[in-house]
Simulated assay, not measured.
Amino acid sequence: MTAAPASPPEDTPLSPALSGAVPLADWGLIRARGADAVTFLQGQLTNELASAGATQARLAGYCSPKGRLLASFVAWQASGAEDWLLACSADVLPPTLKRLSMFVMRAQCKLSQADDVALWGLVGAAAQQWLGTDLAAPAWGVSRVKDAQVVRLPDVDGTVRCLWAGPADQAPAQLPALSPQAWQVLEVRSGVARIVAATSEAFVPQMVNFELVGGVNFKKGCYPGQEVVARSQYRGTLKRRGALLATQAPMQAGQEIFLASEPEQPAGQIALAASADGQGWEAFAEVKRAALAGELHLGSAQGPALQVRALPYAVPQDEA
């Protein structure tokens, strides 16, 4: 563990009553439609989609030939086996859509930005009551409510989360308003990286624990960067991992992290960050595993001290 800051931020508990809905303005949707949609996506993404069917979503990455994540997706069937939606960060959507489109070639698959679909984040009991469906299903399950799809995300500290994607006139606007900051804190604490413009091409999937949260299938076959990702997995020397960090100072994706004893080079990089309701800032970051036992600082070796928090899932300890 790192040395604690002089006045360390308290671990801000989530309110058990945290409940409501928020339009996800910093997310966007790509639609893949056609007879070859699944086949095309299978050859481009880190996860296997063919077996997902209509009842499961998949977390997946899109990598460069060097195995670095250009974007990350939550992907699921929309209206059938030939119609898929891929939710990603809005700021990486245009370049990602352009790049993917370059490789469609003769495949019967049309890619487009799904501007006709509204995307909301739903949280807690109010969401479950409004949906009229059981949200106790495992993470990444997909249910259908009227003309919308509801994707169950991993819980955070016992708080239910899901994505709602559907027509704007059916959106859950009447639910209690959830602040974007509250949703972002949940996203950070989940330990599931969403690649944004500031971190595009910064991480091999394992650097942000992507395979630990179901984002990589090592048996699915080839995709861009597959050899690098596989080599990182099986050579047994994963020197960087995702970690949860906290401090009182503002943080943002792309900021570098430094170890006090090694001021000349960064020890990691922020992947996602959020303000915890005036109680400091929290981040999910890529960090050198060896550095987690030292004093970590934001921005420089003299910057604000960072405190390491526990992840909601286990990280293998015998791989470094």
Rank of each mutant, 00 (worst) to 15 (best):
P312G: 12
A60G: 04
D36G: 07
C162H: 01
Q206V: 01
E201L: 02
A293I: 09
V151C: 11
P94K: 05
G268W: 00
P250Q: 07
E264Y: 03
T133S: 15
L163I: 10
R152L: 12
Q206C: 10
P304R: 09
Q307S: 11
G124P: 05
A168C: 13
V204P: 08
A148E: 04
R33H: 11
L245F: 01
A6H: 12
G191P: 03
G28F: 00
L296D: 04
Q129G: 09
C88K: 04
L70C: 08
E48I: 01
T12M: 10
T199Q: 06
A202M: 06
R161P: 00
A310F: 09
S51T: 15
P266L: 00
S89N: 10
P65E: 02
L245R: 08
L178K: 03
Q108H: 12
Q174K: 13
V160M: 08
A314C: 10
T159Q: 13
L175S: 12
W27H: 13
W164A: 00
P5V: 10
G221S: 08
A107P: 08
A271K: 09
G67E: 00
Q279F: 07
V104K: 06
L238V: 15
P23F: 03
R289W: 03
Q170V: 05
M102F: 06
A107Q: 13
D147A: 14
D169W: 08
P176M: 09
A21M: 07
A310Y: 10
L306F: 11
A202K: 05
G242N: 12
R144M: 12
Q108T: 07
A249P: 12
V188Y: 06
V123R: 06
V22G: 02
G80Q: 04
T46A: 09
S101L: 04
K66N: 14
W281D: 07
L306V: 12
K219D: 14
F40E: 02
V185P: 09
Q129A: 15
Q113G: 05
R33L: 07
Q113Y: 06
S64N: 00
R231A: 09
